[in-house]
Amino acid sequence: MSANSCPLEERMLELTMLTVPDCPNEPVLRERLTQALADQPAVTVNLRVIEGEADAARYGMHGSPTLLINGVDPFAAPGTPSSVSCRLYRDESGPTGGAPSVAALRAALQQTVEHPVPSEPATAVGRAGLGRLAPVEGGLRAVHQRVLRAFAETGKAPSKDELDEAAAPFETSSQQVLAQLHAADFLRLDTFGAISAAYPFSPTPTPHLVQITDGPQVFSMCAIDALGIAAMLGKDVTISSAEPGTGNPITVTVPADTSASRVLWNPATTVVFYGRQSTCGTCPPEASADATVPSIAADICCDYINFFTDQDNALAWAQTHPGVTGQVLSQQEAWGIGVHIFGPLLRPHF
């Protein structure tokens, strides 16, 4: 890997290292990145030296050194300010020094290769295209995964004690972590601080009831969320939903093995309408005031991503809702988006 760039023929990954001049941890990151890339496809690695705070803000540097994978810093907590200061990377076992561990780098690279930034239809439900895998730093992923596992195992949110236990190794409180997860739309909190959405799970009834094999019944926030639960948990699930407007029953059985050919749709003509409000006029004024992403899925799209018995019924429903924009997704498209967004969420963190 050269000091400036290493352009190769295939560009599945593009890596950019951002450092201040003479950063002592730049060689550490370079060495660990070389190890992490040993079995990866051809990539482009660029080195950009950041001279001041203005450049740090422009290029997305959150301390030196920063690694961008396809333009995204996978190790930065939501809302982390730009900075030219020395950066300390931490994992669940404590400080790792001035660069991510080799294991953490490999996990971040694998995540990008297997789950690239989604196409336009997935942007709203997938945090404006940023994905729903919370960063490891600051206990965000540990607390987020504890929330998801609680819903998967019990059908309800975890207790404060459980969340505090997840946050403790990171020397922070669960309340602080939840506030960050809320601001970045990894989950939603109500005005009392209780979890009101934990994508893909809803703590309150929705039209989408999901039976987890050897687990509880849970509600999902929308049709896409329901379709992603099997891949996230590694368990078969059965989705029972109802067509908006007609109430016609729809059942989808999704296997854990992420094979589109084995998903069973009843009726066989079922589609998903992927909609969103063209404006958020029905949302409370404060709904997104503290958000670090452009839009909040629970506010603008969750109510409008639904199963329909066929394309004609989906289009007919859309015509009667002029305030909703969207498109009809095929079965494979809808399932693929669900797997893409939610499949990685319970991946072990390092």
Rank of each mutant, 00 (worst) to 15 (best):
F170W: 14
P78A: 00
M1K: 05
L346R: 05
V254N: 03
L13H: 08
A38G: 11
P200K: 04
H144C: 01
A56G: 08
V113D: 01
L140Y: 12
P203R: 08
P41W: 08
C86G: 11
N306C: 14
T206W: 04
M232H: 06
I337Y: 15
A291R: 13
G326M: 08
T44P: 02
A142M: 10
P158A: 06
T213P: 14
Y274G: 15
Q332F: 12
E137M: 05
I239V: 09
G71H: 03
R90F: 05
A226S: 14
E51H: 14
G275F: 10
R106N: 07
I50K: 04
F219V: 00
F219Q: 07
C283N: 13
L329D: 01
L105G: 02
P24Y: 02
S278P: 09
S174C: 06
G281R: 14
P116A: 07
T123W: 15
N306Q: 13
S173M: 10
L8W: 13
R30G: 12
H349A: 10
T320Y: 12
T309M: 14
Q111L: 11
Q277G: 15
G60R: 06
S83H: 08
F201S: 02
A167F: 10
W265G: 04
H349Y: 13
S82R: 04
M61H: 12
P121A: 10
I50C: 09
S82E: 05
A3M: 15
A152F: 02
S241Y: 07
A77Y: 01
